[in-house]
Design a protein around this nucleic acid. Structure first.
Length: 897
DNA sequence: TAATGGTAGGGGAGGAAAGTAGGCTCATAT
DNA sequence: TACTGATATGAGCCTACATTCCTCCCCTAC
């Protein structure tokens, strides 16, 4: 019998000898589990000269049960150009789980020179050898298997496996989970003690007509159709297990499901003596493992997706701009839907409250599961990972969980093996330390950032960049671990930085080959995208295109990554050195005849000032430059015009704003671009981002600083009059490590300490973002950071002075200084405005009693310079005006304690 | 069984350290 | 001649301040 299915998961079980299991779904939506026998784990041993037999007898003697067989093979060593293969031993064992033991023991033996591929996960060893990939279709031959262990529609005992070419995707079933827990004590719920009270499930497609199901352990009168009530948590969990089995989801998802819901459920299942085999196999319970701060869960045959982690990753990679990661914030931003408002601390209160409150809690739980599912589906968050799986060969779960290194390694393993190369084992901790030291000592220089010409440029600026610079360098100079020359070779390619790689005529490097292929694949995908007829087709092609781009760009970072199997610092350094040469050389070429000036450039891009203000002409000049530069680089790497800036304000390296015109199908499109400036940074409050954006827009589009001034004046006066909503004043920052590890004093950390004291259960953790506002007071600014909600509730006063002097003015000063308006002019305007306006607006001047009761600081009567500490002289050191006490808007010579 | 791509760079806040001005004390002179 | 009080001056030391430099941290550009 022949069966084709899309490969969803793969693992192995040990029935005396290993059996590989392939999980997937066929065209009819039936789940499949295919069992493959007679595949054994192996690795390669390079013995010392002539010691082959010693290795074999050692294995025979010490690992009688485990050792299966050894074969003599000829392989290329992976690092450094090799003309000839080397004889080594391919050692087969009987049990994958024991491979590390044998490997480590062998390593200690004198007759061993090196060991290769002794740490490739068994499932990936199998998949690589059979040339099958996660999320691709495979065809298996074989009869139905007699087993009740796996819970799939079809079970097959496999004789042969092969990949098939099919680009479609099977329809998947999704189930979102959200649990609610009451904690007996204050703080984080403890699965040992605290019971689950509600399990909220959301399905796509519907489960027996229900889009949602709510399991709960308290009876309420007005019962919705989707509510199931149980007498005990034990019974509720039992039903939960059976729902999973009957619905049989492919994807199980949740918000922070890895960190909270799943581990918690597992613990409660254990305590209530329910089954923990939630996967498509009775034998394997769901495993939950902690790696440092991360928790990973695996469910045989299914995929666990944590939407919270996906969101964070997207933000981290700059694909998404969000200030906070809460489900509420994210839903509002991405799908314009709100969460029902209940804090963790209030859950117990609602649960133990009246009917109305319990009902609200139920609605809240239902909404959460719905939102998570909606986010994943409507934003098609998994598409990219499906494509990454197909490209790299990884299983979908590992594409989602793992980093770039695993992807690159999986791809390289296959390509290396195809060409008879072995790849090294992962470095041990000592080797990692050595690499780190080496990097420390030698340094690993990165890209070149050209010194910018700071200021406002109003001539047309042409913006050009290199197409996939680092990947192109790999290809252009045949850079690869397998081609790097340590010895003399007649035919070689020399990079501008002086490194030598063997000529591609003798050996085309493996990485260059892969990268070249990926780059041309991407070009084709982009072309197909342009002619796509349906939105679905376009979106699917786009996901592919993005995945290809990711893979292409991963190789450079990988070679400089200390934990990589194929870490070659020389290669990483060579790549960046070539990049530096290219950008510098390009600048020289552009400036050759004094018509153009390169005013800035970063890594792979340059901005060229022309002598025109006409956009069409600028584009023509851009085309001219493009041709000239590409000719200078002899087709090895090409530059492309990205657009023309009508006006551009450069503040510093990596910080600029411009009014850009792009060409899209011969249509001109205008847009504002801002890089690195506070408008795009998440650690400034919205007031700053918004007003700075407006100011920049006025300056760039209208070139009218006066108008910008007036705008600021209004903002400042609003701020002084407390007319700015507190939401606009919230500054958010990430927590990057545990409290103990922080050395200095920082606002968000100080606030975190306070929050932990107030409500340990609700306090944010590592990886979360904390939002704060600065309130009035005399302590360090960091100690005056406060939770906005707390400020509202306790009616604390916002420190408007902080927002003016430390938030609004500094970024504005930098902008105005760059356009030639002095800092003091603006500061003067800012501060005087602030005080004089306030006075004009009717703040009473004390007449009879000229003393004030509290002080906020010390201020110069003439120029309004403020001092943090009391100056001992009574004169302002700037203008020699008199120093006075002030409180709010009131100044006085006298201060009564 | 089991994790984690890279360097360059700006900028805020706090803290240490070296530098400095002014105050205090004491000696001395008038 | 011895002693007192008021006043001035300068040296030496101490303290608090303003400043500079550095570290830590966050986040971004590419």
């Amino acid at each position: 019998m022949e069966t084709a299915f899309q490969l969803f998961d793969c693992d192995y079980i040990n029935n005396n000898s290993p059996v590989v299991r392939l999980f997937g779904k066929d065209k009819n939506g039936k789940t499949v589990c295919a069992f493959v026998k007679d595949f054994f784990p192996y690795f390669f041993v390079l013995p010392e000269e002539g010691k082959d037999e010693e290795v074999i007898s050692f294995l025979e003697k010490n690992y009688k049960q485990l050792f299966f067989k050894a074969e003599h093979v000829e392989k290329y060593l992976p690092i450094g150009y090799r003309k000839e293969k080397v004889r080594m031993l391919k050692v087969f064992l009987k049990d994958p789980s024991q491979t590390p033991v044998v490997r480590d023991e062998l390593r200690r033996q004198k007759f061993i020179k090196d060991i290769f591929e002794a740490d490739i996960l068994f499932k990936y060893r199998f998949m690589a050898d059979k040339n099958i990939s996660g999320m691709k279709w495979i065809k298996v031959h074989g009869p139905a298997a007699q087993t009740s262990v796996s819970k799939t529609d079809r079970k097959i005992s496999v004789d042969s496996v092969e990949p098939i070419d099919d680009d479609t995707n099977a329809d998947l079933k999704y189930m979102a989970i959200d649990i609610e827990v009451v904690s007996l004590k204050e703080g984080v719920p403890d699965p040992q003690k605290d019971p689950i009270i509600i399990i909220s499930l959301s399905f796509f497609p519907a489960h027996e007509g229900n889009n949602t199901l709510l399991l709960m352990t308290k009876s309420i009168k007005k019962v919705d159709r989707d509510i199931l009530i149980f007498k005990s948590e034990t019974e509720m969990l039992k039903e939960f297990v059976s729902i999973i089995e009957s619905y049989d989801p492919d994807v199980v998802l949740g918000y922070n499901i890895n960190g909270f819901d799943l581990p918690f459920i597992l613990e409660r299942l254990k305590i209530t003596k329910n089954s923990r085999a939630l996967g498509r196999c009775d034998q394997k319970i769901v495993t939950s493992r902690k790696f440092g701060m991360k928790t990973r869960n695996s469910m045989a045959g299914r995929v666990v997706v944590d939407v919270y982690e996906l969101i964070k990753e997207s933000v981290g990679k700059g694909l998404l701009r969000l200030k906070r990661y809460g489900l509420g914030d994210v839903s509002r931003e991405l799908i314009d839907e709100d969460k029902i408002d209940i804090t963790h601390g209030e859950i117990s209160k609602h649960w133990n409250g009246n009917e109305e409150q319990v009902k609200k809690l139920v609605d809240y739980a239902r909404k959460d599961a719905e939102l998570v599912l909606k986010l994943l589906l409507s934003k098609r968050m998994m598409d990219k990972f499906v494509e990454i799986s197909k490209l790299s060969g990884l299983l979908l779960q590992d594409s989602l969980d793992g980093g770039e290194a695993v992807r690159v390694e999986n791809l390289l393993l296959r390509e290396f093996n195809k060409q008879d190369y072995v790849i090294p084992c992962k470095p041990e901790s000592r080797e990692i330390a050595r690499r780190e030291d080496e990097q420390q000592a030698r340094g690993f220089k990165g890209a070149l950032v050209l010194e910018p010409i700071v200021g406002l440029h109003t001539n047309a600026i042409v913006y050009l960049d290199f197409r996939s610079m680092y990947p192109s360098i790999f290809v252009a100079y045949n850079i690869c671990p397998t081609t790097i020359l340590f010895e003399d070779e007649k035919e070689f390619v020399k990079t501008p930085s002086g490194s030598r790689f063997v000529s591609p005529k003798l050996k085309e490097g493996i990485i260059p080959k892969i990268v070249h292929q990926l780059m041309s694949d991407r070009d084709k995908l982009k072309k197909r995208m342009k002619s796509a007829t349906t939105e679905d087709e376009r979106r699917s092609l786009n996901a592919k295109q993005i995945a290809v781009k990711y893979m292409t760009n991963s190789f450079y970072g990988y070679t400089g990554y200390v934990r990589a199997r194929l870490y070659v610092l020389d290669i990483a350094s060579t790549i960046t050195a070539c990049g530096r040469y290219l950008i510098q050389h390009t600048k020289n070429v552009v400036e050759e005849d004094n018509k153009f000036k390169v005013i800035y450039g970063d890594t792979d891009s340059i901005m060229v000032r022309t002598q025109t203000t006409d956009i069409d002409e600028a584009f023509k000049l851009g085309d001219f430059l493009e041709k000239k530069i590409n000719a200078a680089h002899e087709g090895k790497i090409s530059m492309k015009i990205e657009g023309v800036f009508k006006s551009l304000l450069i503040l510093t390296k990596k910080r600029y704003a411009g009014f850009m015109v792009e060409k899209d199908n011969e249509q001109l499109k205008e847009k504002m671009t801002m890089k690195g400036i506070e408008t795009v940074r998440r650690d400034w409050c919205d007031l700053v981002s918004k007003s700075l954006y407006t100011v920049l827009e006025i300056i760039l589009k209208e070139q009218n600083p006066k108008k910008a001034f007036i705008y600021i004046k209004e903002t400042l006066s609003k701020l002084e009059k407390n007319e700015i909503p507190i939401e606009d004043l919230v500054v958010t920052k990430s927590i990057s490590k545990s409290l103990k590890e922080y050395k200095g004093v920082q606002p968000h950390i100080e606030l975190l300490k306070k929050l932990k004291k107030r409500n340990p259960g609700d306090a944010p953790g590592i990886g979360d973002r904390v939002g704060y506002v600065i309130v009035k007071g005399l302590q360090l600014m960091s100690e005056r950071a406060e939770d906005p909600e707390y400020v509202k509730q306790n009616k604390l006063k916002i420190d408007s002075r902080y927002y003016i002097e430390n938030q609004l003015l500094p970024p504005l000063e930098r902008v105005f200084e760059a356009i030639g308006i002095s800092k003091s002019e603006l500061v003067g305007v800012g501060k005087q405005l602030l005080l004089f306006d306030a006075i004009k607006n009717g703040v009473k001047k004390p007449k009879e009693d000229q003393s004030i009761k509290t002080i906020d600081g010390f201020i110069c009567d003439r120029c309004n310079k403020s001092f943090r500490r009391v100056p001992l002289i009574g004169r302002c050191d700037k203008c020699s005006g008199e120093i006075m006490f002030y409180s709010g808007e009131t100044k006085s010579r006298y201060f009564v304690l």
